[in-house]
């Protein structure tokens, strides 16, 4: 088995809350500096910058997992990871079809920028991405699975999490891995929610600024591939996620 340093939750300029310097090339450069091996860009309800990120990742010899952070009808944030760009783009279409037609108020929420292969701002997304889509939590998990992907509920210790919105995790959803934010650690989280000890934790930077990008975990896998990553998330065959003590 090998250890891969992974940051699997961060936002680019595409997310209205993402800093204007969070362009694909700059994200990759900072990740390289932090010795990160695997990165997943998880913008809110959109994946418009993932292809360009992939392009720069290849140049810097960094691995990418195609991803998005979706917001369900119940206003729960869910990290959605996919085996390839094609399935991510299929997912993006499902999300776009269920997005409300409220336009983004740039002054209030921030800009939503798609970047080109030159890492320059290319265009803006008209509709507000940082809002709930008309799909229930169960539907989101089901559809991500159908596309061969895997869903991990975001930052359980914060707002817009399953816990804050729904009080507890519906047992039918059989998650094995859940994310806790970088602001907590498993011990204090479990003190507050003792019955979460059956879960494996993922911990990410959830960066909105370049300086925040950092790995909080290692993927313990045979080699890098989506199926190996999926096994780690499902804690199968000796693959797992190991948090780095900070």
């Amino acid at each position: 088995m090998i250890k891969l340093k992974a940051d699997l939750h961060l936002h680019s300029v595409l997310s209205p809350c993402g800093d204007l310097l969070m362009t694909p090339a700059e994200i990759i450069k900072k990740a390289k500096k932090e010795k990160i091996d695997v990165l997943a860009l998880t913008d809110h309800n959109s994946a418009e910058n993932v292809e360009v990120l992939q392009y720069y990742a290849e140049q810097y010899n960094l691995k990418i997992i195609p991803a998005m952070e979706a917001e369900t009808k119940e206003e729960i944030h869910i990290l959605c990871y996919f085996p390839d760009m094609k399935s991510l783009l299929n997912w993006q279409e499902i999300i776009y079809n269920n997005l409300s037609d409220q336009e983004n108020d740039e002054d209030f929420f921030g800009a939503q920028i798609k970047c080109g292969y030159d890492d320059e701002y290319q265009s803006k997304i008209k509709y507000l991405l940082a809002a709930s889509v008309n799909l229930s939590l169960e539907k989101v998990v089901e559809k991500v699975k159908e596309l061969g992907g895997i869903a991990v509920p975001s930052h359980l210790d914060r707002k817009h999490s399953i816990i804050s919105q729904l009080g507890f995790i519906p047992p039918e959803l059989s998650f094995i891995t859940v994310e806790i934010s970088k602001n907590t650690e498993p011990k204090s989280f479990l003190r507050q929610f003792p019955n979460f000890n059956k879960f494996q934790f993922m911990q990410n930077s959830d960066s909105h600024y370049l300086k925040e990008i950092k790995a909080y975990q290692n993927l313990i896998v045979e080699k890098f591939s989506f199926s190996e990553f999926k096994k780690a998330v499902e804690k199968k065959d000796g693959r797992k996620i190991e948090l780095i003590k900070t």
Partner: peptide
């Protein structure tokens, strides 16, 4: 406004 099944449990 929440219609999720967890509403019943709560």
């Amino acid at each position: 406004v929440q219609g999720h099944q967890n509403v019943v449990a709560v």
